[in-house]
């Protein structure tokens, strides 16, 4: 690699680096400064208090631990369900079936629906819709209070979260499946491999890049879960479904502790950073180079 290509290297990545810096890093860093202050988010001056907020956070705030546990549970279930289901559906949707294009569209639509409408419709389905279906079918699970019971609300939120985002992962898996060269699959068929072993022995390893992307995306989306909870339960019933981001939001904008909120955001960011690096490393190690 010569001098010229080093220059190119910097040149070609620079625009991306600059854009990311001014839209995300710069505001985030400035905002992190407030974690060292006591500030209500409104008044014109913030009072510098050093590491006080972090002290409060680590030694005086069991609530934050609770929301981290909730977020962890949510992320695990969300990753598992959305990746497995998306992979299965994507495998079917790349087959030569007539309705494939429309079906892909169908699975994608929830991803772009407005959260307020999603909240309204699902609340209605969970209450009145389920009640009506219960009258017809008599199936017990329909008569449960899915959004009103602290334990069930967790599963309801995960379910709607997966429903809303599944299409996103399907699109990514489809792109990966379509990138597998036809001749590889044909060769496997000629070798006499059955559908299932073709899937596990040939397709899955070759899907490496897609799996890495989807695992990483579902991990970050799971950890950052916000909108869907706000729309469905607003953290309720009785505070049972607060995620980390929702808690940060509440601390900063509802309780007007912008300083403590920023401290939480910073700590949470570090946790997420570490988690994602671990997942990325594991997932990359298992990738097969073509």
């Amino acid at each position: 690699m010569g001098n010229k290509s080093k220059k190119e290297l910097i040149l070609f990545t620079l625009p991306a680096l600059i854009m990311v810096s001014i839209t995300i890093y710069l505001p985030f860093v400035i905002s992190s400064y407030y974690s060292l202050t006591e500030w209500n988010g409104i008044s014109k001056s913030a009072k510098f208090i050093g590491l006080q907020n972090f002290k409060t956070l680590f030694f005086n705030n069991s609530q934050f631990l609770n929301v981290l546990i909730f977020t962890g549970k949510y992320t695990f279930l969300f990753m598992l369900l959305s990746n497995v289901m998306a992979l299965i559906l994507a495998t079917f949707l790349v087959q030569k079936i007539k309705t494939a294009n429309i079906l892909r569209g169908v699975f994608f639509v929830p991803y772009i629906m407005s959260m307020i409408i999603v909240g309204f419709i699902w609340k209605f389905i969970f209450s009145q819709g389920f009640a009506r279906l219960f009258e017809i079918t008599g199936w017990g699970f329909l008569n449960l209070s899915w959004l009103g019971n602290a334990h069930l609300a967790f599963y309801a939120v995960v379910f709607v979260g997966v429903w809303q985002q599944l299409g996103f992962y399907i699109v990514l898996y489809i792109a990966g499946l379509q990138a597998i060269p036809e001749d590889v699959m044909e060769a496997a068929t000629v070798d006499g491999a059955g559908a299932l072993s073709r899937f596990f022995r040939v397709k899955l390893p070759l899907l490496g890049p897609s799996i890495t992307i989807c695992l990483f995306m579902s991990l970050t989306n799971g950890l950052k879960v916000f909108d869907i909870i706000l729309a469905l339960t607003q953290g309720g019933p009785g505070g049972a479904t607060y995620s980390a981001t929702l808690d940060i939001y509440r601390e900063a904008f509802q309780y007007n502790n912008y300083g403590l909120g920023s401290a939480k955001a910073l700590v949470f960011f570090l946790i997420v950073l570490i988690m994602t690096q671990i997942v990325l490393t594991i997932s990359r190690r298992n990738e097969v180079e073509v």
Binding site: G41, A265, F269
Partner: peptide, 20 residues
């Protein structure tokens, strides 16, 4: 550097974003 921002929740820097 480019990928890490995916991990930052948008709500945490809204106030300063508009300022910038």
């Amino acid at each position: 550097f480019i990928i890490t921002p995916m991990l930052i929740p948008f709500q945490t820097f809204m106030i300063t974003l508009l300022k910038v």
